[in-house]
């Protein structure tokens, strides 16, 4: 008995060791970024990345937050479209994936193809823009973030795969009890799919949270900018001014540019954008943890 236990312990130790090393490769760069965001611009230029900055310099952050109203609005817009958008998306996608997972669904093949086709083919930027902006008038509204990207064929197929893995006996017994498909969906399928729901929801949330391209294309009202777009704008401004300083147009006094935090700004922005998501992540993470498995399947 004790020999087996010993073997178990070593084997587990190895695994944990492996993961600790792996985690370091992920955490270290991230720490460097955090540290760089708090380092003074000049020191960063001369001495490069360090784990611990010589002293904490909030200039990067101060610069970004100098217009607080703007930033808060961007946070609000981003939060709303990301969360609500994810909620709607996951709902619509799972609703579609469930029938596709049912082998006895008459339209299974054609609809799967219909969905999957969009993964590969799309009209491109101009046609999509014309439709959304000119004909559907979604430009400069909050819905542009949510509606066109409601469904992702990739995730629908992922959901379908997971749903297919659930025992058909559950569905059959529910049907015998006279349940409608929609009830089966909400009361049986969804509750058993927490891991995949959490995974896809998290990934969708992340994607939506980081979206800046939509703002670039469709939004001119600064009240509807997403966080990432606003941050990129600020960075562009600063980088451009820096560029101008290096190619000094004659007769313009640009000494105020010397205090501009360009590099630290980039890193501060990264943290500002990523920060909230990192806080959200643990909330989803509990659905990945073991123990929430399919206990009720049998019988």
């Amino acid at each position: 008995m004790s020999v087996v236990k010993k073997k178990r312990i070593t084997y587990r130790t190895w695994i944990n060791l492996y993961f600790i090393i792996m985690s370091i490769t992920f955490i270290l760069p991230f720490l460097l970024i955090v540290s760089a965001s708090l380092t003074n611009e000049d020191i960063l230029a001369k001495e490069g990345f360090k784990i611990i900055p010589p002293f904490i310099d909030w200039t990067g952050y101060k610069f970004v937050f100098s217009n607080v109203g703007e930033i808060l609005r961007a946070y609000a817009v981003t939060t709303f479209q990301a969360f609500f958008g994810t909620f709607l998306s996951v709902l619509v996608m799972t609703l579609c994936a469930y029938p596709l997972s049912r082998k006895d669904f008459k339209f299974r093949k054609p609809i799967t193809f219909f969905v999957f086709f969009t993964m590969l083919f799309n009209g491109g930027l101009i046609p999509t823009y014309l439709l959304n902006y000119k004909y559907l008038h979604l430009g400069n509204t909050i819905w542009i973030y949510i509606l066109p990207t409601l469904c992702s064929a990739f995730y629908i197929i992922i959901f379908r795969t997971f749903f297919q893995g659930l025992p058909i006996s559950l569905v059959e017994s529910a049907k015998l009890d006279g349940a409608s498909e929609i009830r089966i969906f909400f009361q049986i399928i969804l509750p058993l799919s927490k891991p995949v729901l959490a995974t896809v929801a998290l990934l969708t949330l992340l994607t939506k949270w980081n979206d800046w391209y939509t703002s670039l294309i469709y939004i001119t009202d600064s009240n509807l900018y997403t966080l990432q777009f606003l941050l990129k704008r600020i960075l562009q401004e600063v980088e451009f001014l820096r560029f101008m300083a290096n190619n000094t147009p004659p007769g313009i006094d640009l000494s105020y540019l010397e205090d501009m935090p360009v590099e630290t700004l980039k890193f501060a922005m990264c943290i500002i954008a990523a920060g909230p998501m990192l806080l959200v992540f643990p909330f989803f993470q509990k659905y990945f943890a073991k123990g929430l498995t399919v206990g009720s399947v049998k019988g």
Partner: peptide, 15 residues
């Protein structure tokens, strides 16, 4: 089942 897939189908068709 078809009804369940409708929101997605409509969204795909339009967008």
């Amino acid at each position: 089942l078809l009804v369940l897939t409708l929101p997605a189908i409509i969204a795909y068709f339009i967008f």
